[in-house]
Design a binder for these strands. Structure first.
Lengths: 102, 102
DNA sequence: CTCTATAGATAACG
DNA sequence: CGTTATCTATAGAG
């Protein structure tokens, strides 16, 4: 992203990987919070570093409440407007689906 | 971020907010997956749109496993290397804490 | 939806 | 650990 392009694969150098993890984790949490503020969405993020360290972000509400809501949507999720996906399907094709007008 | 600067507040126009939500949600999930791949981290993201729609991303493992691991780290979290924060504390000061060398 | 210019994120450097 | 050059994400237009 900066002085050099990134590879879409695991960083091998342990030191470099640690630095990148720290920076990107910060950026990801920032982005998550921005999305929740801009669009009034409830967002929860959980990150486990390779060293087993846990990082959590709960925007709008608590993580506990988000997990509870998530459980209801998946476990007993017979709600009509739920979209569960694992992102493998959603992100691999360069295909954005947006609504430009209602 | 592009033809105009963004405000760090809730978007009022419903249509504009919907479009932004869609674009940023896609970008956030992409970033999350990149982080998990680059740094070999286990990441779970849960997003509830204002309309109550649920979006989930589980990178490296299942969301169920991530939540389970999360519960153990918080509930019985007497582990020595756990960092729980709500991002309010972590992101507001322009203060990055990184390890340059181990 | 697709394209483009620009704001924002960040890899490498000091 | 702060700065800078670049790359990427994305707001706005077509």
């Amino acid at each position: 992203m900066a002085r050099g392009k990134i590879q879409l694969k695991r960083i091998e150098n342990p030191v470099h990987r640690q630095v990148t993890f720290c920076k990107r984790r910060t950026g990801l949490l920032k982005k998550a919070k921005e999305l929740s503020v801009l669009c009034d969405a409830e967002i929860g993020v959980v990150i486990f570093s390779p060293q087993g360290k846990l990082f959590e972000l709960a925007a709008k509400g608590t993580m506990d409440g988000i997990i509870d809501k998530y459980m209801k949507c998946t476990g007993g999720g017979r709600g009509s407007s739920s979209a569960i996906f694992t992102a493998q399907e959603q992100l691999q094709p360069p295909n954005l689906v947006c609504l430009s007008s209602p």
